[in-house]
């Protein structure tokens, strides 16, 4: 009990004084996960919108695949990416194994299904009468699509935030492809693993507190957005019917 209490006090001290060993790791975490989120959104959002708005062959199969990928195990992503990026692997010429770039790629693979599947289902969930309304008002297909996506904006933001929550707290993949190198690829989760190993609980706890706060903030925002979304769509449904 004494260990926990003492470590907690020292952990708060690290946070309050913005200790360099602590801030460096937090900043890198946000850079890596933020970068991964952008990459995943650049591919996942357009694909999600396309899947939701267009009918094409194998559309349901594609939905099935993306939904299945939601449960992709991070360590498997790490292992496969390691084999690809290793100098003996097919992408070895890039020589990015054990760099932040490899970590960004790993996390964007993990974030992509969340961004794509949740935004697609949000866009699909928009009241179908809206499409008819746009058409009667003489909108082109592109304008109609834009209007529908605009209606689904809360759902899309939820998708991006859910993906961020997944990657910022992920450890399996980035430990394998990042290597947990001090000052280069050591992020919050991998540092917690190492510091716990070393019995250095204060830094581990300080980083844990930051992680917990991040996920609390994200979840609060998501639930606020969702309640707003439900409220909005109800009023609009009334208008459209």
């Amino acid at each position: 009990m004494e260990t926990i209490f003492n470590s907690l006090i020292r952990a708060f001290y690290l946070i309050v004084t913005l200790d360099k060993s602590f801030t460096e790791i937090v900043v890198l975490s946000f850079k890596v996960s933020g970068g991964a989120l952008i990459l995943a959104s650049l591919i996942g959002l357009p694909l999600g919108a396309f899947m939701a708005l267009k009918t094409f062959p194998l559309r349901n199969t594609l939905f099935g695949i993306v939904n299945a990928l939601l449960g992709l195990p991070p360590v498997l992503v790490g292992l496969l990416l390691y084999l690809f990026l290793s100098r003996r692997g097919p992408l070895g010429f890039l020589s990015i194994l054990y760099t932040p770039y490899a970590m960004v790629i790993a996390q964007s693979i993990l974030a992509f299904p969340h961004v794509c599947a949740i935004s697609a289902s949000a866009i699909r969930g928009v009241n179908p009468n809206l499409k008819l309304l746009c058409k009667t008002l003489g909108a082109t297909e592109f304008q109609t699509a834009l209007t529908i996506i605009r209606e689904a904006r809360f759902g899309i933001i939820t998708a991006v935030m859910a993906a961020f929550g997944r990657v910022i707290s992920e450890v399996g993949a980035i430990l394998i492809v990042g290597g947990n190198i001090l000052g280069v690829t050591r992020v919050m989760t991998t540092a917690i693993v190492l510091e716990t190993d070393k019995g250095d609980f204060e830094l581990a706890l300080a980083l844990g507190i930051v992680l917990l706060s991040v996920s609390l903030i994200i979840n609060t925002l998501v639930s606020k957005i969702q309640s707003r979304y439900v409220h909005l769509s109800q009023s609009e449904r009334g208008f459209l019917q």
Binding site: K31, G34, G35
Partner: peptide, 25 residues
């Protein structure tokens, strides 16, 4: 929670992205 607030969230995310790209190397 209005759309101004939401675009601020998006802005933060984009800012983080730019930071990542600019200081990547």
């Amino acid at each position: 929670m209005n759309s101004k607030y939401l675009s601020m969230c998006l802005f933060v995310i984009v800012a983080v992205a730019c930071l990542t790209i600019s200081t990547g190397n």
